[in-house]
Design a protein around this nucleic acid. Structure first.
Length: 305
DNA sequence: ACTCTAATAT
DNA sequence: GATATTAGAG
């Protein structure tokens, strides 16, 4: 914990030619003592109050270290994928999506956990900001003792943001490719498991089924097809039926060392997320507030009459 | 090894 | 009620 964060401790496949320049650049960096510790707020207290800004949650040095490691991991991952990512320039996907994972905290409810919303935010969209990722989910997993691993994950809460992302991905993939594993990969949400997605997908499909069975005429089918932001960009479906979304799946963003799935073991089949151009386009593109689509259950269980 | 569906458990 | 987990078949 006492060790300093080494930003320069890795190389991005750099050539030996750049060595000198890197050293030069490194030499020009401010001394470690000149820098404001990341664990310390950069905004003064009165400034915060003047603008009624909530102070950032306290972060221990441990948190900071972990965050920077995540950043490095992300950077590394990106560099490995640059060949695939050439069209990744804009983040049209994550524009307004605050990826949020809320976890039911059971007994271990402590931390700086007031009722505020923006606590465990996880943004893997742009690995650029190196933001402090939500470290709450894994607290159980990589808890101090690595041997206490493999315990049960915290229950996943499908926040509207998360659901939005799910829907977007499903819409993009199209019916044919929208299977749990693929969806999970494209969502690229730290800590999200295939089971999580599968379970959610199952429910989502039931919802869609209901929407289709009901005669498209009457009924209160939310026809609001205007989507805020990137969402339901449909207009004209290509032959693929999948809505365009340049957002390649990021293999192993490695949030925390996920016990399963390491890039090597993906073996023969490997990634396997080719881009099949087919499938139909479903009205996957609906803006759904939780109510809009959780309401289907009532209709469902209580016999549509 | 994954997916799907339904049923059941937490 | 929302998610997770399991079973059983494909």
């Amino acid at each position: 914990m006492g060790e300093k964060v080494r930003i320069t401790g890795y190389d991005v496949g750099g050539g030996d030619d750049d060595e000198g320049r890197v050293l030069e650049w490194e030499a020009g960096l401010p001394n470690i003592d000149d820098l404001t510790p990341l664990s310390q707020s950069m905004i003064s207290a009165d400034f915060l109050s003047a603008f009624s800004i909530r102070p950032e949650p306290y972060r221990s040095l441990c948190d900071v270290n972990r965050a920077s490691q995540n950043t490095l991991s992300n950077l590394r991952g990106e560099s490995e994928q640059q060949s695939v990512n050439k069209f990744n320039s804009s983040k049209s996907f994550g524009d307004d999506i605050g990826d949020e994972m809320v976890v039911e905290d059971e007994e271990t409810t402590d931390l700086t956990r007031d009722a505020s919303d923006l606590q465990n935010l996880q943004r893997l969209d742009d690995g650029g900001d190196g933001g402090v990722a939500g470290e709450e989910i894994d607290s159980a997993l990589l808890a101090d003792d690595p041997s206490a691993r493999a315990s049960k994950r915290a229950r996943l809460a499908w926040t509207p943001q998360l659901h939005k992302r799910f829907v977007d991905v499903v819409a993009h993939l199209g019916v044919k490719n929208a299977v749990p594993k693929t969806i999970m990969q494209w969502m690229n949400v730290e800590g999200l498991t295939r089971e999580n997605v599968a379970s959610h997908l199952q429910k989502y499909r039931l919802y869609l089924k209901r929407m289709h069975i009901q005669s498209p005429s009457s009924t209160q089918v939310p026809q609001n097809l205007h989507e805020s932001g990137s969402g339901a960009a449909h207009g004209h479906h290509h032959a693929s039926g999948a809505i365009p979304m340049h957002y390649p799946p990021q293999m192993v963003p490695m949030p925390y060392q996920s016990p399963q799935m390491d890039p090597n073991s993906s073996g023969s089949g490997g990634g396997g997320y080719h881009h099949g151009f087919e499938s139909h386009s479903y009205p996957y593109n609906m803006t759904m507030q939780q109510r809009d689509w959780s309401g289907y259950q009532h209709r469902m269980t209580s016999n549509d009459k």
